Simulated assay, not measured.
Amino acid sequence: MKTVHFLVAFVLLASASPLALASDPSPLQDFCVGINNTGNGGVYALNFLFVNGKFCKDPGLVIANDFFFQGLNIPRPTNNQVGSTVTLINVEQFLGLNTLGVAIARIDYAPNGGQNPPHSHPRASEILLVMQGTLFVGFVTSNPNNTLFSKVLNQGDLFVFPQGMIHFQVNLGRTNAVAFASFGSQNPGLITVANAVFGSNPRINPFILARAFQLNPNVVKNLQAKFWNNN
């Protein structure tokens, strides 16, 4: 009987714990337009309420422009090493997103193989909409199967990347490609696999990575030098 009582208490505790949440917490009010501090030219935090890392702007001072953002129609340059530019609009760039559980990004891809390299979002699933061009996209499931789900997408096509899964996009066309990604979090987070592994600060011991990737340690050191400079 004591065991049963303990199990019941454990389940109730787990369900009530913030650690049991799997996504952004639900808002407890209509909105909470974020501000970065409490002394912003008369715009102050309502009772110093702190929600999702931001103070709330006084609702009486909220205006339509707090929910407005523009500029995602502007193409971004793609003349970099991976051939793409991601313009992420999360709560840091758009304070009106605070507590709403959404974010968006524009992705510009260079012709002939411009890519958004393998990466993951630890706090959100992603839905990708191709606006221009042809993309090869995919994600890999977790261990032990590591199954690749991939697809060629054309204008108007959608593809979903589940939360936390490593995924990528590559431009197959000879012209620029553009896609928009929507996220189920105001701050989805980003882990670029190559940067995280070879560009960490401080660096991971190259002999550890050499064994993990079955590479010569000198190859690892060369990769670390490249990604260290990029970061």
Results as ranks from 00 to 15, higher is better:
residue 153 L to W: 12
residue 153 L to G: 03
residue 153 L to T: 02
residue 154 N to R: 13
residue 156 G to K: 07
residue 156 G to Q: 06
residue 156 G to C: 10
residue 157 D to A: 14
residue 157 D to H: 14
residue 157 D to E: 11
residue 157 D to W: 12
residue 157 D to S: 13
residue 158 L to H: 11
residue 158 L to T: 05
residue 160 V to W: 07
residue 160 V to G: 00
residue 160 V to I: 10
residue 161 F to H: 00
residue 161 F to V: 04
residue 161 F to P: 01
residue 162 P to A: 04
residue 162 P to H: 10
residue 162 P to I: 05
residue 162 P to E: 09
residue 163 Q to S: 10
residue 163 Q to D: 01
residue 163 Q to L: 13
residue 163 Q to C: 01
residue 164 G to Q: 08
residue 165 M to D: 00
residue 165 M to K: 07
residue 165 M to T: 06
residue 165 M to G: 02
residue 166 I to F: 11
residue 166 I to A: 09
residue 166 I to H: 00
residue 167 H to I: 03
residue 167 H to Y: 12
residue 169 Q to S: 15
residue 170 V to F: 07
residue 170 V to Q: 09
residue 171 N to T: 02
residue 171 N to A: 07
residue 171 N to K: 07
residue 172 L to I: 02
residue 173 G to A: 13
residue 173 G to M: 12
residue 174 R to P: 00
residue 175 T to D: 15
residue 176 N to E: 11
residue 176 N to S: 10
residue 176 N to I: 05
residue 176 N to W: 10
residue 177 A to T: 04
residue 177 A to Q: 09
residue 178 V to L: 15
residue 178 V to D: 06
residue 178 V to G: 00
residue 178 V to Y: 07
residue 180 F to Q: 03
residue 180 F to L: 06
residue 180 F to N: 02
residue 182 S to A: 14
residue 183 F to E: 05
residue 183 F to H: 03
residue 183 F to V: 02
residue 184 G to L: 09
residue 184 G to P: 05
residue 184 G to Y: 11
residue 185 S to K: 04
residue 185 S to I: 01
residue 186 Q to Y: 13
residue 186 Q to D: 12
residue 188 P to Q: 06
residue 188 P to E: 10
residue 188 P to G: 04
residue 188 P to H: 00
residue 189 G to Q: 07
residue 190 L to I: 14
residue 191 I to G: 00
residue 191 I to R: 06
residue 191 I to M: 12
residue 191 I to C: 00
residue 192 T to W: 01
residue 192 T to P: 00
residue 192 T to M: 10
residue 193 V to Y: 11
residue 194 A to I: 01
residue 194 A to M: 08
residue 194 A to E: 08
residue 194 A to V: 02
residue 195 N to A: 12
residue 195 N to L: 14
residue 195 N to K: 07
residue 195 N to Q: 12
residue 195 N to T: 08
residue 197 V to G: 00
residue 197 V to Q: 05
residue 197 V to K: 02
residue 197 V to C: 02
residue 198 F to Y: 14
residue 198 F to P: 00
residue 198 F to Q: 00
residue 199 G to A: 06
residue 199 G to C: 04
residue 200 S to I: 03
residue 200 S to E: 12
residue 200 S to Q: 14
residue 200 S to F: 15
residue 201 N to S: 15
residue 201 N to M: 04
residue 202 P to V: 03
residue 202 P to D: 08
residue 202 P to G: 06
residue 204 I to Q: 08
residue 204 I to Y: 09
residue 205 N to T: 04
residue 205 N to S: 07
residue 206 P to M: 08
residue 206 P to E: 12
residue 206 P to F: 05
residue 207 F to L: 14
residue 208 I to Q: 15
residue 208 I to Y: 15
residue 208 I to A: 12
residue 209 L to S: 06
residue 209 L to T: 05
residue 209 L to D: 05
residue 211 R to E: 15
residue 211 R to Q: 15
